[in-house]
C-alpha cells in the first residue's frame, strides 16, 4: 500500500463520514430532542446539546399510551406482510422470469398498474371491501392490503433478479428429480438471497410506517399501529413534541437493529451464494 493509496483511503473515509453525517443529522436532532428538558426543545437559537438528560418523554410514550401494544401490532403486521409478500411475490416472479408462457409483458404491466393509483382514491373502496369481508379491526384487514401494494415492487424486482440467473441450475436440478417447487425453494430462492433480503427490508419498512390505511381500517385502540399511535399524541392542550420525538426514536431503533442484523445477509453477495463460473 503506497502513500497514494493511504491518501485515497483517507479521502474515502472523509467522504463517507460527511455523507453519513448529513444523512443522520436530522435523526440525531430528533434523538437529542427526545432527551431534552421541555424548555429547551424549541429554544431560540436552537440548542444542540441538552443541558441535562431528561428521560420523561420515553416514560410518557409507554405510560400515557399503550405504545407497547402498538409496537407489537406493527411488528406482527409488518412481519406477516413481509413474509407473505416475499413468498407470494417470489413465486410469481419466478414464473415470470423463468417459465415459458404467453402474456408475460401484459402480466408485468397489469401487476405494476396496481401502484399507479393515488392511495387516497383506493381508501374508500378498500374499506367497503374489508367491511364486507368482516376484516375491519383485524390484522388480516391490514396485512392483505399491504401485501397487495407490496407485490408490484416485490414481483418486479425479484423477476429482474431471477432473470439474471443462468439456466443451468434448474436443468441440473430437474435431473436430480426435483419438482418445480423444489427447484424454486431449494435452489432458486437461496441464489437471490441478498436481493430477497433487500426487498424484504423495503416491504417491512413500508408496512411498518404506513399510516392512512392503518388509521382507517383499525378503529379499535388495541389494534392501532405505531405511526397512528404517534399521530394520536397531540391534543388541544399540548403538542408533545418531546413525546413524539421519543416515539419516533422508539419506532426507528428496531429497524436500525434489524438492518444491523441483516446487513450481512443483504451484502452476502453471490460469491458466497455459489454462482461462480
Amino acid at each position: 500500500m503506497g502513500k497514494n493509496n493511504i491518501f485515497k483511503l483517507l479521502l474515502f473515509y472523509v467522504f463517507v463520514i460527511l455523507f453519513v453525517g448529513i444523512i443522520v443529522l436530522p435523526f440525531f436532532w430528533q434523538f437529542m430532542t427526545s432527551i431534552k428538558p421541555i424548555s429547551e426543545i424549541a429554544a431560540i437559537p436552537a440548542k444542540w446539546i441538552p443541558s441535562y438528560l431528561h428521560g420523561e418523554f420515553y416514560k410518557n410514550v409507554f405510560t400515557k399510551h399503550p405504545f407497547g401494544r402498538y409496537l407489537l401490532n406493527s411488528a406482527f403486521v409488518a412481519s406477516t406482510t413481509t413474509v407473505l409478500s416475499i413468498l407470494i411475490g417470489a413465486s410469481a416472479a419466478y414464473a415470470l422470469a423463468r417459465l415459458r408462457f404467453k402474456g408475460k409483458k401484459f402480466m408485468l404491466m397489469a401487476i405494476l398498474s396496481i401502484s399507479m393509483f393515488p392511495t387516497i382514491a383506493t381508501l374508500s373502496p378498500i374499506y367497503l371491501l374489508l367491511k364486507e369481508l368482516h376484516l375491519i379491526n383485524k390484522y388480516a384487514g391490514l396485512v392483505i392490503p399491504y401485501i397487495t401494494f407490496a407485490l408490484p415492487l416485490t414481483i418486479w424486482l425479484l423477476t429482474n433478479f431471477f432473470s439474471q440467473l443462468p439456466k443451468g441450475f434448474e436443468e441440473a436440478a430437474e435431473i436430480d428429480g426435483c419438482s418445480r417447487m423444489g427447484i424454486f425453494f431449494r435452489i432458486m430462492l437461496p441464489l437471490i438471497k441478498p436481493a430477497i433480503f433487500s426487498v424484504a427490508l423495503i416491504v417491512f419498512i413500508n408496512a411498518w410506517n404506513e399510516y392512512i390505511y392503518a388509521l382507517t381500517f383499525m378503529t379499535n385502540d388495541l389494534m392501532r399501529t405505531v405511526p397512528v399511535g404517534i399521530a394520536l399524541f397531540p391534543s388541544n392542550y399540548e403538542l408533545p413534541w418531546g413525546d413524539m420525538a421519543a416515539g419516533s426514536v422508539v419506532v426507528t431503533v428496531p429497524l436500525i437493529i434489524m438492518v444491523l442484523i441483516f446487513q450481512k445477509k443483504i451484502i452476502a453477495g453471490l460469491t458466497a451464494g455459489g454462482i461462480k463460473e
Partner: peptide
C-alpha cells in the same frame, strides 16, 4: 407448512397463505 413443500420430492402445489392473521379482538 409452506416451507415443507420445498422438499425436493414435494408436489407442485400453490401456496394457500391467504390470511393467517385471522384472529380478532
Amino acid at each position: 407448512m409452506i416451507l415443507s413443500l420445498a422438499a425436493c420430492s414435494g408436489k407442485t402445489e400453490t401456496e394457500k397463505e391467504v390470511n393467517t392473521a385471522e384472529e380478532t379482538v
